[in-house]
Computed example of a mutant assay.
Amino acid sequence: MDFSFNAEERAFQQEVRDFIAANLTPDLKRAAALTPSVFYEPDISGPWHRALAAKGWVAPGWPVEAGGPTWTPAQRWIFETECAAAGTPGVSPMGVRMVGPVIIKFGTPEQKAFYLPRILSGEDYWCQGYSEPGSGSDLASLKTRAVRDGDEYVINGTKIWTTHAHYANRMFALVRTGDGGRKQDGISFILIDMKSPGITIRPIITIGGDHEVNQVFFDDVRVPVTNRIGEEGMGWTYGKYLLEFERGGGITSARLRKALGQVVTLAGSDEVGRPIEEASIATRISEIEVDIDALEMTELRIMSALQTGQNPGAVSSMLKLRNSEIKQAITKLGVDVIGYDALVWQPARPLYALNEPTPIAEDELPVVPEYLDGRAYTIFGGTSEVQRDIMAKLMLGL
């Protein structure tokens, strides 16, 4: 969308562009473009995170007193759209967008003083310990248990689909510390050092060929009680708060628009026969553009709420649902656009490490892995069915 900016906002837009020009190296830009995974590898996201941290721009959703920048919603939108347009890597959301807001809201002064600076600097790399075998959409049925032993909890159990656990040095996890009348009772929110004895990480290779997720096992893992966020047994409340930021704490429309633009470029290429000239392809492009515009307007409203210290609320489920569906529509369109080239499979990972010639153009390499990995968008972070249930109950009152 086109917006009219005032002089101060135009100056900020130029500042963002200058920052990107100074810090986005050609190698980082190429690596970002060739990453089909949901998250960028730390060797890509890390340098970008550190550059943003040095500038004070790494946590735009945080309050100023916690280390966030003094941005207006317009500046936040400018920053996100300029980064997307330039093709910058994304910062891992686990620390900045997910556990960070929970610590800010519910953490003790000691927890804030220790963890928040390490999240901002990138010293800590986080993963999420929510889902378990048999406890995915029905997360409240989780069985990983933490038994108190003096000043420590002893944790036994397993977590699955744990994105980037093989890189993380810290995990935020929901564990069962007691039992109650409801499944949601007796769950606590614990911060775990991934170097603790008794933790085993088993890789899971996705259908797209990427090592993004893992299964993590806990065998008598000892964690200090001081690593618990808030009250014992109240973890379900804190976990739901975190999910609001996971589902609706950022601006995804800008990167969706960038992804669609890349597919449009492919569709207009002679290498794939210019499918953009087909009416069905052109129609699908137009439909996705309209969907992105609608999502963007909703995100702008949420940015205004976040800037005043509010949490996203139930509308985050709508944002997550639409982002997932639009992303899948774009990746499916990409596969259809490249046609027979989609039958070429490149097993090597990461794609950006390839130096030898490939049988298809380099910008086509991530198309099929992105499509395959993107099937998970409507599952992780709460399935689309769960999001519709939340919207029906909390937004429509059904």
Rank of each mutant, 00 (worst) to 15 (best):
Q346N: 09
S324V: 10
L321F: 14
A279V: 10
E277H: 14
E271K: 04
L354Y: 04
D291Y: 04
A353V: 05
E325H: 15
E278C: 00
Q328R: 15
A305E: 03
T283I: 05
I330K: 02
E271Y: 00
L295M: 10
A314D: 03
P347S: 04
R255L: 02
D293I: 09
T298F: 04
R257V: 04
N355P: 01
V337K: 00
R301F: 10
P350L: 10
D270C: 01
L351V: 05
K332V: 10
A294W: 12
Q310A: 13
A254W: 12
S324A: 15
I338K: 04
Q328N: 14
A348K: 15
K258H: 13
A305M: 07
V315Y: 07
G339E: 12
I276A: 03
Y340G: 08
D336G: 08
L343Q: 12
L266F: 06
E299C: 02
R284V: 00
R322G: 00
A259K: 07
W345M: 07
N311K: 14
A329D: 15
T308E: 14
I326W: 10
D270S: 06
E299F: 01
V335Q: 04
G268T: 04
V290W: 05
G339K: 08
G268Y: 03
L333W: 08
A282Y: 07
L295G: 07
D270W: 02
E356C: 07
Q328V: 09
R257N: 14
V290R: 15
A279G: 12
W345S: 08
S253A: 12
A279W: 09
V335Y: 07
Q262G: 01
I288M: 10
S324P: 10
L256T: 02
I285R: 15
I276V: 06
P347N: 07
K258M: 09
L333S: 06
R257Y: 10
E278W: 03
Y352M: 06
L256F: 08
D341C: 09
A348H: 09
M303Q: 14
L266R: 01
I302L: 05
D293F: 13
D293E: 13
R322M: 07
D270F: 01
K327D: 15
S253R: 04
A267W: 02
R284T: 05
A348Y: 13
